[in-house]
Design a protein around this nucleic acid. Structure first.
Lengths: 139, 139
DNA sequence: ATAAACTCTGTACCTGGGTACAGAGTCAAG
DNA sequence: CTTGACTCTGTACCCAGGTACAGAGTTTAT
């Protein structure tokens, strides 16, 4: 009477998470997730725990963490909150620096695009001259 | 009477720009800068023009452009301003999206670090739980 | 005039983050 | 019970962006 739940094989896991099969295997190779033990004969079954871990990895990656950083976060997860916090704080500072950099670039690009729009000569493009001259205000 | 200006050999160029010798050669290999012609016997001399181009590349790289993007900017530099502007506009949009992403991450990390500071338990770390749960507000 | 320092050329190697594929085994539907 | 779809294992390959090194030639300082 029970509707059969199809076993969570690698391709179902991949589809569930929205990731490639080969990528899952890659993460296994580099030890980011562990391989479910193989049942003597048959396919590996991916437990919920592993799916959660994969989701964690994906979200962290989207947020700009490298796989190495993700790994340290995962390792610290089991340990002290203080240590994880240190990792996060360090990352936060990097993120803030990166934001500042990008905002600087944004300004430069906006200025340059505007200048190009206002003065659409075919020569003496402001964009090229901007990048070609001294560094922009980098405090 | 004239003080000898030492010739701008590759290592002097590298030092001047603040880049490795091998990196300059790498840029030559991939066609990003051209190799000064070699004087039958002796070392290649790097003209100011090439130094400028290297500086351009470095600044653009700092601003987050890939070498491929840098190349297209350099190519467009000689052509129409309108085209360069298109490249810059596209890049601007990417930059703005990236900034938004990072600001989202910043908020999440700040919240999490704050939560950790307020409630420094050794277990149930908010950071880990945050990344472990549903995706943050990603509009 | 000779040794140290530099350059040139070519090729090999590295890290990060995957992606592809061959060949053998396994499962599931008709 | 066969056929097609899937999995497993292992290895190879891809891209970006470099970095290293060997062996031969050149320059420069002493």
């Amino acid at each position: 009477m029970s509707t059969k739940i199809p076993p969570m094989t690698i391709s179902r896991a991949a589809k569930e998470i929205g990731i490639g099969i080969e990528t899952i295997r890659y993460y296994q190779r580099i030890g980011l997730i562990d391989e479910p033990s193989k049942p003597a004969s048959g396919y590996r079954i991916y437990p919920l725990e592993t799916l959660e871990r994969l989701r964690f990895i994906l979200r962290a990656k989207e947020l700009g963490f490298s796989l190495a950083e993700v790994e340290s976060l995962l390792e610290l997860g089991d340990g002290s909150c203080r240590e994880s916090m240190l990792v996060a704080k360090t990352k936060l500072q990097l993120i803030q620096a990166k934001i500042a950099d990008l905002q600087n670039l944004e300004q430069v690009l906006e200025g340059v695009v505007h200048a190009c729009e206002v003065n659409p000569d075919t020569h003496g493009c402001p964009l090229v001259e901007t990048l070609g001259s001294q560094p922009q205000q980098k405090p």
